[in-house]
Structure formats: C-alpha cells, structure tokens
Computed example of a mutant assay.
Amino acid sequence: MSGNPGHTSRSSLPARAGAGFKPQHADEILADSFRIGFLEVHAENYMGAGGHPHRILTRMREDFPLSIHGVGMSIGSPTGLDRAHLERLKAVVDRYQPAMVSEHLAWSTHDSHFFNDLLPVPYDEATLSRVCEHVHQVQERLGRRILLENPSTYVAFEATTMRETDFIRQIAERTGCGLLLDINNVHVSATNHGYGAIEYLSDFPLDRVEEIHLAGHAEDLDDEGLPLLIDSHDRPVDDKVWKLYDLVLARTGPLPTLIEWDNDVPDWPILKREALRADARLERHAENHTITARERRHAR
C-alpha cells in the first residue's frame, strides 16, 4: 500500500507556535496585539450541525490558520473504522478547510463501546497492515493527507515485534501520511518504559514530521515506586521537554508547534507565555539554519 498522489495537505501551517483553541479565550485572542501563529481544535467538539461553537470558530478562522486534531477516529481499532464518525470528520474538514488534519496512533472504540482513553496497539505486522489500511481509508475519504501522532504509553504488549519508531516509519512510508511528533509523549513513554528519549528521537523519522505538540504532564509513582508520568495536558511544558524540543529543532529546523493545554485550562496570558517560549526557540533555530545553509553555499 502506498500514498495516493492525489492526496493534498492544503496550505501549510506557519512555522510558529500555535495554541489549542478554547472558546473562553476568543475575545482576548482577537484583541491581543500578539498574533498567535495558528489555532488547533479537536474535531469532535465541532461535529454538530451548527450553534455557538461553530459561530465562534468561524470568526477565529477569519484571522488565524486552523489545524484540526481528531481524538476519536480509533485508527488502531481491530474492528474497523466507524464510518459515521469518518463522515462527521469529513464534514468538519470540508467546512473549515484547515491547513492540517491529524489523528492519533491509538484506539478508543470496540464494537459499540467508546472508551475515554487513547489506548495503545501492539507493534506487529498484523497491526501495521490494519493501521495502514485505516489511514488509507481516512485519506481517501477526506481527499487529503493526514498527520499521525505518536502515542504516550503506560504498558507494552508481549505481541510487539518491532520498535515504535520502525512501526511509525512504516506507516508513513506505506500510506504517504505525514507525522505529528508529540515530544511530551516521547518523554512520558520513555520514562514509563525505561528507555532514552534522545535515543528514540534519533531513530524517529523526523523528515516526515510536519507539526510538533508540546504539553505538560503529571508525575506519579507506579506500584514498584518507580516514576510514572501521565500525559495530563494540565500544566506548563516541563524543562526536560523543552530541551528535547531544542534537540529536534536543531535537526529539523522550525516546524509548526502546538501548545496543548486541555485540562485545568488557564487564562489566555499563561497559554500565550508558553507560546512565546516556543516562538523564541523557533526564531533561534531559524537563524541557525539560515547561517548553516549560507555556510554550506560558501563551502561549495
């Protein structure tokens, strides 16, 4: 299976910091002299036919690039895609024509049951084929490429036969989809499973990454007293995640970067502060890549 050359990604997001859009911030965002790079929304919040949420988002779409992030497609589901959900997603995408559409490498549905979690999949050939087929179906129906996000995980499957980075690389190569790199997820999973986040990122197909997510996490202990991180999205980005972000940007150059904050949502100035921290890093790495490119030209 391979990507369909007819799939398009529409216009790209700017290589700046964006924020997860919350309607309570709308007035402040519009009035702020600081213009956030882009806004991202969860598709499932806009699957109704109309009403106040759509009126607000339509207004925001006039001033800011938009990214749509799905959390309920259940691309890893062993029972196939929910066709009704896919049609609702298509309606949202057609309505807002976002710069990017993304989903999770996870599953959250089984038969008629919906779980309020993004659950992991085993990394084996059978699951790889199934996920690729589901990504292919989504892209065919939407008529465009999507981005697939790496998961945060707390358990591993005995059935796993390949590394997560290889599994994700194979999905991108077979389907032509892009990747969304959630750096907080990398740190959370690496801590929970006892491997190195830097080593993971060294093996990740960064050339396929088109957007980055940053978020906060909660710290806990497991039953054996070892560190356990929870991808909580309820606090500022951790310093260790900022350092990993710098390492990634040094290799990729600037990429659209979302600040995710979905629980205990703060006032807009706090989200703005996090976005400014990301923008400062993006600007610095843009300068470094410009200097490096100039040096390479002079060396020829």
Rank of each mutant, 00 (worst) to 15 (best):
L118G: 00
G72V: 00
R208M: 04
G70L: 04
G18P: 02
R16I: 00
R297I: 12
H69L: 06
L179C: 03
R88A: 15
Y123T: 03
L86I: 09
S189I: 01
H187A: 15
N263H: 13
C132Q: 06
E295C: 10
E173H: 02
W107K: 02
H85L: 14
T160D: 15
A49I: 04
L206K: 11
S152Y: 00
D94H: 11
T161K: 03
V41H: 09
A43F: 12
P23V: 00
F34G: 03
D182V: 03
R16D: 04
F64M: 02
V93R: 04
S108G: 11
M60W: 08
G216T: 06
R95V: 02
D262Q: 08
P256Q: 00
N263Q: 13
A286P: 07
R251M: 11
H187E: 15
H134G: 09
I29A: 11
H42V: 10
T252C: 14
P98W: 06
E149H: 03
L86D: 07
A15Y: 01
C132S: 13
P266H: 10
T161G: 11
G51T: 07
V265T: 14
E164D: 12
L258E: 06
C132Y: 01
E103K: 04
N185L: 09
I291P: 03
V121Y: 09
H113P: 06
L206E: 07
H217C: 12
L244T: 00
K243C: 05
G216E: 05
Y195K: 03
S77A: 15
A280D: 14
R235I: 00
N184M: 09
L86Q: 10
P122V: 00
F34A: 11
Q24R: 13
I230K: 14
R281E: 11
G50D: 15
R281Y: 06
L147W: 01
P227A: 11
L148R: 05
H193K: 03
C132H: 04
E210K: 01
E210M: 00
T58K: 15
A286W: 06
L221G: 05
G51M: 07
H136E: 11
G6K: 09
A197L: 05
I171T: 05
V248E: 04
R296N: 12
L118F: 01
S232D: 12
S202K: 15
P205G: 10
G176W: 02
E149R: 00
L226N: 15
R163F: 08
L13G: 06
V101D: 04
A106S: 15
D222Y: 01
T191N: 10
M47K: 09
P266T: 08
D203F: 03
H54A: 12
Q24K: 14
D220N: 14
H104V: 08
E158Q: 13
